[in-house]
């Protein structure tokens, strides 16, 4: 860790030596909004996972009730009903499952690709590095939404498409960071030692170097989840999002637009969920960055 310059370091010098993760945890806790955000996020995730088992029926979220379309919030439907009479609270909970899942899986795709390409480039250098980095440059130069539109039109709009498209467009910054860390770490003594002992490349890369490069990856992963949720919303606005009848916060918000004047609650709640969730994720990511690697460029 190279974070010793900040003001905290003086404080720590007089204490018992601590591992980098403990240090990070202490820093994280100092970021109060980050902590609060994480708790809210935990609540949202819990609600979304447990909600259906606990108090929301699948019928409420999926079964259209033509006799009760666009009804305002009431005792029966806390957040009202939508344009085909489904309960908005139930749909927000089911939609949250989808939106968060899209965010998480897209993040996994992006991180996997980024770490893989970044570590290969950084570790092997030379022609491998040049090829991978030029490809990274190419992908960085094309506006993401342009490619997402093309991909969605190509593969047909579906959850799989969205996850792959978002993942496919977010790995570049991770790859760059991982590459630069690998470049510096691979010259360090413990790597040289491992190499002398005849440890295989793959094991050195992912067994020895990668754990030391995890901090920025964790931060990037967090922030990617947030941006993936927003991207899903933007893609929904263009009509290429998650397809019916599956709810997602993005397609709920898109569908609510026409009703913004006559039934604003249909728009307000999914919009608020997207906003607060992304906000909390970003705060959490910010706190993580402060804690793990304040100089990170994400």
């Amino acid at each position: 860790m190279t974070v010793m310059e900040s003001s905290l370091s003086t404080e720590i010098m007089y204490r018992k030596p601590q591992g980098p993760w403990q240090l990070a945890a202490r820093r994280f806790v100092r970021h109060r909004i980050g902590v609060v955000s994480s708790l809210i996020l935990l609540f949202i995730v819990g609600l979304v996972i447990l909600g259906p088992a606990w108090f929301i029926s699948e019928d409420a979220a999926f079964r259209p009730d033509p006799m009760r379309i666009n009804s305002p919030p009431s005792a029966d439907h806390w957040l009202g009903t939508d344009e085909v009479g489904r309960d908005i609270l139930a749909r927000i909970i089911y939609g949250g499952r989808v939106s968060l899942l899209v965010g998480l899986l897209a993040m996994l795709v992006a991180i996997t690709a980024g770490v893989l390409l970044g570590s290969l480039a950084g570790y092997f250098g030379g022609i491998v590095d040049s090829l991978i980095m030029r490809f990274t440059d190419v992908m960085l130069s094309i506006p993401g939404i342009f490619l997402i539109i093309a991909l969605s039109v190509f593969m047909g709009p579906s959850m799989r498409t969205i996850i792959l498209a978002i993942g496919f467009l977010n790995w570049m910054s991770v790859a760059r960071v991982v590459r630069s860390l690998f470049l510096s770490l691979k010259e360090q003594d413990f790597v040289l030692a491992a190499r002398c002992l005849g440890v295989k490349d793959g094991r050195i890369m992912w067994g020895h170097i990668l754990p030391n490069a995890m901090a920025p990856v964790v931060v990037a992963a967090t922030l990617t989840v947030g941006s993936a949720i927003l991207t899903e919303t933007a893609v929904s606005y263009l009509g290429l999002g998650i397809q019916p009848p599956t709810p997602s916060w993005g397609n709920m918000l898109k569908n609510a637009q026409d009703l913004i004047w006559t039934a604003p609650w249909v728009a307000i709640f999914p919009g608020a969920m997207i906003f607060f969730t992304t906000l909390c994720i970003n705060f959490m990511g910010d706190a993580l960055r402060d804690a793990l690697d304040p100089r990170m460029q994400l």
Binding site: I33, Q257, I274, L279, D286
Partner: peptide, 21 residues
């Protein structure tokens, strides 16, 4: 500092078409 952070994240977390509308 927190307020500034909160404000700057506000626009970042808002779906842009919704914000526009």
């Amino acid at each position: 500092d927190y307020l500034v952070t909160a404000f700057s994240f506000f626009g970042y977390s808002m779906p842009s078409f919704w914000f526009g509308l």
